[in-house]
């Protein structure tokens, strides 16, 4: 599992980011000792650093430069300042990516996984399993008791969203929003069609009653 180091002085954002990323299978570490934060990042041996710009003691740019001098760990700068100059400066100081607050969490997760995919080859991120159903996200295949079925792009996205939130009801709007983030601007009817097709595919490999509809609320696995 990939380890993400969060450098953020706002307590609530730090805790909530921690919760969110843990839910998606990342290990999180953070530090509030901003004087020694650079040493902490290096000794934590994280796979990725999420860095805020406005920090006490040193600003994010300084920290970014210092980390870069000692390590090649990918750095994503997260900031509320959104102008060309900030972005340019971040990139010049060796940051790998730049996201502005308030970010869409799906976009943040997508950026994180894209960078991790490039830097560490981590097989465990690429499969999700729940109740014996295994989803291979890179191969776009769902597996159950040795039988497999291929999924389309939309079906894969729907199933991985539901399986990442196993046990929680996900509303239709949330699933649609998720699909929209990959440039598939589908409407309500298309989602129904996609869900039905996905169900049929699951049934074809003997997965029954896995994807449950909660009337008026959404879907749950």
């Amino acid at each position: 599992m990939s380890k993400i180091f969060i450098i953020e002085d706002d307590d609530i954002i730090r805790t909530e980011l921690n919760n969110l990323l843990s839910k998606y299978g990342y290990v999180c570490e953070s530090s509030t000792d901003f004087e020694r934060v650079i040493d902490n990042v290096i000794s934590a041996a994280a796979d990725l650093v999420l860095l805020d710009i406005n920090l006490p003691m040193f600003d994010g740019y300084y920290i970014c430069r210092e980390i870069r001098q000692r390590s090649n760990v990918p750095i994503i700068i997260v900031t509320s300042r959104a102008n060309e100059l900030d972005e340019l400066m971040s990139m010049n100081l060796g940051a790998d990516d730049f996201i502005t607050k308030p970010y869409n969490t799906q976009i943040l997760l997508a950026h994180i996984s894209a960078i991790l995919k490039r830097t560490v080859n981590n097989e465990t991120i690429n499969t999700i399993s729940h109740k014996g159903v295994i989803l291979h996200t890179t191969k776009s295949i769902v597996e159950y008791n040795g039988q497999t079925a291929e999924l389309t792009k939309n079906e894969l996205r729907i199933l991985s969203t539901l399986m990442n939130n196993k046990g929680n009801i996900i509303s239709r709007d949330d699933i649609m929003n998720d699909l929209w983030q990959s440039d598939e601007f589908i409407d309500d009817n298309t989602l129904t069609v996609n869900i039905n097709r996905l169900r049929k595919k699951l049934e074809s490999i003997d997965i029954f009653d896995f994807l449950v509809t909660r009337r008026g609320q959404g879907y749950v696995v």
Partner: peptide
């Protein structure tokens, strides 16, 4: 933007 971002994260979680 910071409180907005943290509110959105709380909602997400």
């Amino acid at each position: 933007k910071t409180p907005i971002a943290s509110t959105l994260l709380i909602i997400e979680n």
